[in-house]
Design a protein around this nucleic acid. Structure first.
Lengths: 241, 241
DNA sequence: CCTAGTTACGTACAGCGTACGTAGTGCGCT
DNA sequence: AGCGCACTACGTACGCTGTACGTAACTAGG
């Protein structure tokens, strides 16, 4: 009686190795690395059970011994890139440290442009996610607010980083493997946007468009957003000029 | 020579109706409504070209006359729920107005729990999205900052609303059509999280967990996040006690 | 040693997006 | 007026997906 579990499974809760049977040919890390490699090189849509299995050099269905559902494969991928976080020694300046964390997260997402899309759908707490959370709390040690407020700060900041970086990646690279170029698609979208604004139906939007000169500096916009979020949590902020 | 366009298409740029040929049996609004109905009742995964066509009572491939790619169907859906925004008369109090907008957006997403997932992947500017943007700018008229800063405020606020509501929906309702109950899955996840925290590997995280008593008030957390974002943009904020 | 639990994997199925071909319809142009 | 073409409609088919299920080989615990 093999029987599938009638209860939801958290992949991190099931042991990687149980006593009986032949030794598994791969570790979870192997599988995660293969999936990440495929996603980096051929896009997230290329991450299918078949392709990952092929990358590992095993049969498709063998993968299901390690990863009961595809969703779990995604969790492995998120955990894998979570290992790339730089867990530095906190300096005592919580603002600077959190900025560094945010830029670090952004850099990781830039290396793995599929990450924001995955983060939106997976809510698990993987080992590396927990480690990163703990690190953030360590950075926030000097900040004198309740622990609940700190976790809210982390959540808000992470949300902003994800949202902004997802948008930037979208405008810069757009979905991969399109028959037309990125520039072309963006041009079409901007042309449409311009034509709509030109109808006069959106006067304030038009004014905002007129005001801006030259291309937007995405990096600067991002940093400003971070600073604003940090301001909102900074007890010293009110006293500043 | 029918020939597909070798250039990206923005569905809003292509006219809904061109002169020639038989009258289309449906409008875009019909199609969007059908897709939204399916997503509301049976979940986003049930929104397939086949199902939408069936809901409309036409052949699957006929749908492609109206919606060249499935991605465009998603854009129609987002635009459709964008019509649910309450475009009230600005009161002159930009903070209160923007709070109202945020709560309004949150309410829409709660009615259509698939919305956050879609928003993460679609970046178009649909008619109703533009209308809502214009409305927000109208609400921000009393705020004396550059237009660019206003659009940044709107973007940041919308991002926070989407992120937070997506998370809340996930914990409250989780993916639909699971063989186990929501409570069960959350219980399993929390049990795992608790077991990890109990290992002592995450002391600060453990402390944060200890600190909290009783269940988290998601609404309060959400409102606090909004207030913080608004604080960060409020010129009067520094002068307050 | 035996056997239960595991690994490995081929086959099969339902469902997906959508390319393509064909038939019918009615507006615009000559 | 009527020709032609752009459009609607839709059936069929292809390649792909996740994964249920069955079978064979293997190994550690009792």
């Amino acid at each position: 009686m093999a029987g599938r579990a009638a209860v939801p499974e958290v992949i991190w809760a099931r042991p990687e190795r149980t006593g009986r049977g032949p030794k598994p040919a791969f570790t979870r890390a192997d599988i995660a690395a293969a999936a990440v490699r495929i996603a980096d090189e051929r896009g997230l849509d290329a991450v299918s059970m078949r392709h990952v299995a092929a990358e590992l050099g095993c049969g498709t269905m063998s993968l299901y011994n390690y990863v009961p559902r595809k969703e779990d494969l995604y969790e492995l991928m998120i955990d894998a890139i979570g290992a790339e976080h730089e867990l530095f020694e906190p300096t005592g300046d919580w603002r600077a440290d959190m900025l560094r964390n945010a830029e670090d997260t952004r850099a990781i997402m830039r290396r793995h442009t599929w990450a924001p899309r995955l983060m939106a759908g997976v809510y698990g707490f993987s080992p590396n996610t927990l480690r990163y959370l703990e690190h953030c709390l360590a950075c926030l040690e000097p900040l004198d607010v309740p622990a609940g407020t700190k976790t809210e700060l982390i959540a808000l900041l992470n949300g902003v980083v994800t949202t902004y970086t997802a948008n930037d990646i979208a405008t810069v690279e757009r979905t991969r493997a399109m028959p037309w170029s990125v520039a072309e698609e963006n041009a079409v979208r901007m042309a449409y946007l311009g034509s709509q604004v030109a109808t006069g139906a959106y006067p304030r939007l038009a004014a905002a468009f007129m005001e801006q000169s030259g291309p937007v500096d995405l990096e600067a916009v991002f940093r400003r957003a971070l600073e604003r979020v940090l301001d909102a949590f900074d007890p010293d902020f009110r006293k500043k000029p």
